[in-house]
Design a protein around this nucleic acid. Structure first.
Lengths: 212, 212
DNA sequence: GTCTATAGGAGGATAGAC
DNA sequence: GTCTATCCTCCTATAGAC
């Protein structure tokens, strides 16, 4: 059975501009406080123009969140795919990539996804949920591998329920402008999930590298 | 140096009614989508009446969040104070109480606090922040005790950064209508923070009880 | 495709009667 | 204290010119 092709939404450069401007403003102010006029003005267009490209303001929100999900899954899949080494190394790479997603260039679309998800219509949520689930599956694979290697002793599903909200909430207390600061916090978080001091986590990484 | 007395906001029964109705509606729909007319109608009053009791709609939001913080801190302080046994038992009691806060009768005010905090004016945030910090201090004490007892091996601050968002996010995926279901998830989460299977966490609890 | 102009409605807040 | 009536602003969305 083949899947229907995903709607990409960014069919034209103009549409991509609207999605981008909307993501920035909605991430900052919230959906309800961001008017169509605000968004159009940000790219030097007038509000009527938006309704030529999108049927409603809600459709624009769906397009922003769809981009947030697709770009996010692509970012993490790429990090997962290209990570070298064993489960522990891939775990650290994925967590660091997730921090990069939240604090890097994709941060606006990601934030809109997280903050405004439940403002979507039920229909829109149904359309987007399968894409969002890929995100979870990636992490679950890795947590199972950590269990198999004896590093994760607790229930993987509960570990995921600790991890994802904690990562997404880092925007509230951590400023991570560069790759180095993300890698550093990534190590702290990986160590915390394994209930180890950071130094011990480093030792585990070395041991994994030597053993493989 | 003595602190100024805290504004309680619920100075009259009518004000308490407004706070209660606002909490329910805002928790459900969000602040921006909840009109003053909605809130007043919920307690069979007209919208003008709200502006007799509160200067602005924003003041009402501040009152709701202030109640969320005060009731929440009181709830957790009481749970902490009355918990029996060692650090592990008090940890479980506090986590379970937190789940009770989020899923029980105080859930509406708590949810408004978490979801609408950054819609407060900077002034209001400054006023309320000291109260919110008490919340954190309570948990930090406990995590330090767990470190002293050798159960928590990772940095306590990072453990808190895992724990609090995860607890608050449980509303998105867990339905915990009664005390038993909260106690059960509480054990899972405590075990996950210590990176132990639930059965091993039970064994640690028994060992602590026997040793004291 | 983009603009201007505007319809049509909802929102926060105020005034004054009771 | 509460109500009704209303002001004024802002919003989404549409119509029609260019």
């Amino acid at each position: 059975m083949s899947l229907a092709p995903l709607r990409t939404f960014a069919d034209t450069p103009r549409i991509a501009e609207f999605i981008d401007a909307a993501a920035r403003l909605i991430a900052q102010q919230g959906y309800d406080r961001t008017s169509v006029r605000d968004i159009a003005r940000a790219i030097n267009l007038s509000s009527g123009t938006m309704f030529y490209h999108f049927k409603t303001k809600d459709d624009l929100l769906e397009a922003v969140i769809s981009k947030g999900i697709n770009d996010g899954v692509a970012h993490l899949t790429e990090a997962y795919r290209s990570a070298k080494g064993g489960a522990l190394h891939r775990f650290l790479a994925l967590i660091t990539a997730h921090l990069g997603l939240i604090h890097g260039e994709l941060r606006h679309v990601h934030r809109v996804w997280i903050r405004e998800w439940d403002r979507l219509s039920p229909d829109a949520r149904l359309r987007l949920r399968p894409q969002a689930e890929q995100y979870r599956a990636l992490l679950d694979n890795l947590l199972l591998a950590l269990t198999a290697d004896g590093h994760l002793k607790t229930d993987p599903a509960t570990a995921r329920h600790l991890l994802l909200p904690a990562l997404n909430w880092t925007t509230a207390w951590a400023d991570l402008p560069d790759e180095a600061s993300r890698a550093s916090l990534g190590e702290q978080i990986c160590a915390a999930i394994l209930n180890q001091p950071v130094a011990a986590f480093h030792a585990l990484l070395r041991a994994e590298a030597d053993g493989s």
